[in-house]
Design a binder for these strands. Structure first.
Lengths: 172, 172
DNA sequence: GTCTATACCCGGATAGAC
DNA sequence: GTCTATCCGGGTATAGAC
């Protein structure tokens, strides 16, 4: 995987600020105006650094996928570790995670192969069986998004203390 | 589970039309104006039948969860059947499914307990072990949404021919 | 139940000066 | 790189007549 050069200078500040804003309000509530305000500039100024609003989402998502991928690659010794890492990433950046996985996100703007690279550990940890890899990834994502969105019933929104796979448990 | 009375008369037509529109364009692209146009009326007229736009989403989601729940309850003899049913429901109404599971959806407006009822089969089929039930639901949802959003890599977007659980395979 | 008219607000984005 | 001024489109929703 060839990573794109990370943003530098003013652009980096913009992306970082946008990231923070997304994490607190959600992407849908981050407009060019609110972002500009947070940077103490006016909205039109942003267009000197970025072509469209989607570009900002793309920068954030690229950074997020790299971060996620690195975290996962460092924890693919066991299924338990991998799941625990995935879970904590999703929970600690829930709105970023939602942006990454939302259907409206323009995935085609991402660097080619980035998402695939990020989730490779799911395939590594399942003996390179693609079917098992897909299944494990799907399980991890399903657990993450259902938990984040509080869709499990029961006390504490039904969030399990850990995620179990087969007979094993991925402790938090 | 006590189901709410389904909409009748003009309201039913509105909801049905909205359903169709959502399925073709996605909820984000269904405005009061476009919906009204499809019904050959003007947008303000809709407010005689519905209080807000969110109400329409709620009506659609309610209908969809009932439909999904019924389908699942009829196919909870085996894990394979249940997964196959879930998958085909999600694939045949992908944009409705996205609405149901999107983070922005105002789940609090749904009839109390409806979603929980709809997914009970996942718990029934896993010997009422809540952990296993959650895991199976999460797996099913994860597979569905990753497949629908074409996030699997590989030919045909990497969609598996069927979903496998453990050593078993859920045929399409 | 439908209409017209309209208020109101918000969004993304551009042009051109400094 | 930032500004002001502005365009333009879109959205939800209300008032009041028919």
């Amino acid at each position: 995987m060839i990573f794109p050069d990370p943003p530098t200078g003013r652009l980096a500040e913009i992306v970082d600020t946008a990231w923070r804003l997304v994490e607190t309000r959600g992407w849908a509530n981050v407009s060019m105006r609110t972002l500009a305000a947070e940077l103490n500039i006016k909205a039109p100024s942003l267009y000197k650094h970025v072509k469209t609003r989607e570009d900002i989402a793309t920068h954030i998502a690229t950074k997020a996928f790299i971060q996620l991928g690195q975290g996962l690659h460092e924890h693919c010794e066991s299924v338990e570790d991998l799941l625990a890492e995935y879970r904590s990433m999703a929970r600690e950046n829930s709105n970023i995670y939602r942006l990454l996985t939302s259907s409206e996100f323009p995935r085609n703007l991402l660097p080619e192969g980035l998402e695939t690279w990020a989730v490779t550990p799911f395939y590594l940890v399942t003996d390179h069986d693609p079917i098992k890899g897909q299944a494990l990834w799907a399980f991890a994502h399903g657990m993450a998004i259902l938990e984040i969105d509080a869709r499990f019933a029961g006390p504490n929104n039904g969030s399990p203390r850990g995620w179990r796979v087969g007979d094993r448990r991925a402790g938090v």
